[in-house]
C-alpha cells in the first residue's frame, strides 16, 4: 500500500509544480461562473423563481456544480491512460508489481486532494465577495451528506473515465469517444442546467443512468431540494460496483489485445 501512497504524494507534488496552471484553471472556471451570474441575474429580472429556484438558489447551484467539476471530475485520466497505451509507456506496468487501476486511482486521488485544498480556499473567497447573492444552507448535516455524495460521484466518474481510457486497446485514438462522453455526461449530470428544469422525458431517461448522482443529486441534497434518504447513497454504490467489475473485465480483455508498441 505504501507504493500507492507514494503515487498519491507525487500527484500532489505535481500539482504544486504546475501551480500557475492550477490557478489559471481556477480563473477560467470563475470567469464562466461570472458570466452565468450575469446571465441568470438578467434572466430573472423581475421574476422571483425559475422552475423552483430563486436567483440565489440558482447561483448557489452553479457555484456548487463548478466546485464538484473542479475537485471530483477527474477527466484527465482518460487522456493519460489513452496516451500510455497508444505510445507504449503502458509496457512498464506489465513488468512492475503495480496494479494499474490502483495506480491511476491513487494518482487521481492525489490530484483531487490538491485541487480540493486550492479550490476550497478559492471558493471561500468567492463567498466573501458574492455571499449576498448566494443562498448556502445552514445545516451542517447537509454538508456532510454532500461530501459523501460527491465522494460516490467521484468513483462513478473515475470508473467511467478509466473504462473509456482502456478503450484505447481497441480504438487506438479515443479523443472522439472522450468528447462524446463529456458532452453527454455534462447534460445528464446537471452541470449545464439543473436537471429538474429539463423536459420530463430527459429526466425519466436519466433515472436509469448514474450521471445525476455525480452533480445534481449532491447539490440537491446540499440545497435541501431533496432529502438524503438511503437510496440516494445505495444506488450510486451499486453503479460503482457494476463499473468496477466491468472495468476489470475490460482490462483483462484489453491486455490480451495489447500489442505492446515500443517493446
Amino acid at each position: 500500500m505504501r507504493k500507492y501512497f507514494l503515487i498519491f504524494k507525487n500527484a500532489i507534488r505535481e500539482g504544486m509544480i504546475y501551480r500557475i496552471d492550477t490557478l489559471t484553471f481556477l480563473f477560467s472556471e470563475i470567469l464562466i461562473f461570472f458570466s452565468l451570474f450575469y446571465l441568470w441575474s438578467s434572466a430573472y429580472g423581475e421574476s422571483v423563481t425559475i422552475g423552483n429556484y430563486s436567483l440565489k438558489e440558482m447561483l448557489f447551484y452553479y457555484l456548487a456544480a463548478h466546485f464538484i467539476l473542479l475537485t471530483a471530475k477527474n477527466n484527465e485520466i482518460t487522456w493519460m491512460i489513452g496516451e500510455e497505451i497508444r505510445m507504449g509507456s503502458f509496457n512498464i506496468f506489465l513488468v512492475q508489481p503495480l496494479d494499474y487501476s490502483k495506480y491511476i486511482l491513487f494518482y487521481i486521488l492525489g490530484k483531487s486532494f490538491f485541487n480540493t485544498l486550492i479550490f476550497t480556499s478559492a471558493f471561500c473567497v468567492i463567498f466573501i465577495f458574492f455571499g449576498q447573492y448566494l443562498d448556502p444552507p445552514n445545516e451542517i448535516s447537509r454538508y456532510i451528506y454532500f461530501i459523501i455524495s460527491v465522494g460516490l460521484g467521484f468513483f462513478i466518474h473515475f470508473f467511467f473515465n478509466y473504462i473509456i481510457g482502456l478503450s484505447t486497446f481497441w480504438l487506438g485514438m479515443i479523443q472522439g469517444i472522450i468528447f462524446s462522453f463529456w458532452s453527454t455526461s455534462s447534460l445528464l449530470e446537471g452541470s449545464i442546467v439543473p436537471l429538474d428544469l429539463l423536459p420530463d422525458f430527459l429526466q425519466r431517461i436519466n433515472d436509469f443512468l448514474p450521471f445525476k448522482y455525480t452533480v445534481f443529486v449532491p447539490i440537491s441534497i446540499l440545497n435541501g431540494k431533496i432529502d438524503p434518504d438511503l437510496a440516494l447513497f445505495l444506488i450510486p454504490v451499486f453503479w460503482i460496483l457494476f463499473l468496477f467489475f466491468l472495468s476489470k473485465f475490460i482490462f483483462k480483455k484489453g491486455i490480451k489485445r495489447y500489442e505492446g508498441f515500443g517493446i
Binding site: 434572466a43 429580472g45 425559475i50 472522439g176 468528447f179 447534460l187 428544469l197 429539463l198
Partner: peptide, 30 residues
C-alpha cells in the same frame, strides 16, 4: 482514424446542441 473522427464530429455537434438546449431551457421560463 475514421471512427475517432466520426465520434469527434458527433461530440462537437452535440456540444453545439447543448448550447441551444441551454438557451432554450432558460427561455422556456422567461
Amino acid at each position: 482514424y475514421r471512427l475517432n473522427f466520426l465520434l469527434l464530429i458527433f461530440a462537437v455537434s452535440f456540444q453545439m446542441i447543448l448550447s441551444v438546449i441551454f438557451v432554450r431551457t432558460v427561455f422556456s421560463f422567461v
